[in-house]
């Protein structure tokens, strides 16, 4: 079943068309990677779908709901999560509090918690946070201020925040950037587990081609704001257009 679909999606900044009539489809429980050279419009595409940017033209359909023009929090509440390219965390809060923010949103909705109820009384929130931290293996750091974590851990925390929002569809913007090989492997495993164990649908923007070709069910190639190829890793590997436009003719 198709979970997400864009139709004619376009974004221009002044005269520059960053995303040009893009049409993509993401099936349920699929792992789709978006690749392309720098400035190809990958981040813009994610920003359009998750509501950070408003499309100039076109629609984004998620389970028959049109997302275009909705606020980020509404889109998140519909079940679309995202992790950011930079570690977008709350630096002065503890690791646990960082994830708690997301857990409250998932358990209690966008604005319904009781401002006179102590927050340690929300057991389901605690449980959700604990689960998310365990998944990224940060449960031992729960009481540490997020700012004091090493960079790789901050990125994992960022992923945990994304997970705690309980998404059906998760966008991950370069989740392994700045990670050590060990952390990268852990993150790759995590991505696969989220897909298989939790039945999540994942859209990945990634520079590391080993990861992309390893984990993806489908790969979209973006070049100058347009989709130039779309297929399984094997198909993409053998695609002449992709090689000349993007991979510089190199063997992958």
């Amino acid at each position: 079943m198709t979970l997400l679909q864009t139709r004619n999606l376009t974004k221009s900044f002044g005269g520059l068309v960053a995303v040009d009539t893009v049409e993509i489809e993401v099936e349920e429980n699929e792992l789709v990677s978006v690749i392309g050279p720098n400035g190809a419009g990958k981040s813009t595409l994610i920003n359009l779908i998750t509501g950070m940017l408003t499309p100039t033209d076109g629609d984004v359909l998620y389970r028959d709901t049109n997302l275009a023009g909705k606020d980020p929090y509404e889109i998140t509440q519909l079940g679309i999560g995202r992790s950011f390219q930079t570690a977008s965390i709350f630096p002065e809060l503890t690791v646990q509090d960082n994830v708690d923010v997301a857990s409250f949103a998932a358990e209690q909705g966008s604005f319904t918690v009781n401002f006179l109820r102590r927050r340690d009384r929300y057991d389901s929130v605690r449980q959700r946070t604990a689960d998310a931290l365990e998944l990224v293996d940060l449960e031992d750091e729960a009481d540490v201020p997020a700012a004091s974590l090493p960079y790789g851990d901050k990125r994992r925390l960022e992923v945990a925040i994304g997970l705690a929002t309980d998404p059906d569809l998760l966008f991950m913007d370069e989740p392994t950037a700045g990670m050590s090989p060990a952390e990268t492997e852990m993150t790759t495993n995590l991505i696969e587990r989220m897909q298989t164990e939790r039945g999540m649908t994942i859209v990945l923007v990634e520079h590391d081609m080993d990861i992309v070709f390893d984990v993806s069910d489908k790969i979209l190639v973006l070049h100058r704001g347009e989709i130039i190829a779309d297929g399984t890793p094997d198909e993409i590997r053998n695609d002449e257009t992709v090689r000349s436009a993007y991979l510089g003719g190199e063997e992958i």
Binding site: S88, I89, F90, N98, V101, S110
Partner: peptide, 17 residues
């Protein structure tokens, strides 16, 4: 406090900032 630290992230966890 989360809004003070990173308003954008708060809206992207699904809260109406």
């Amino acid at each position: 406090r989360a809004i003070r630290e990173n308003e954008q992230r708060v809206s992207f966890v699904g809260l109406n900032v």
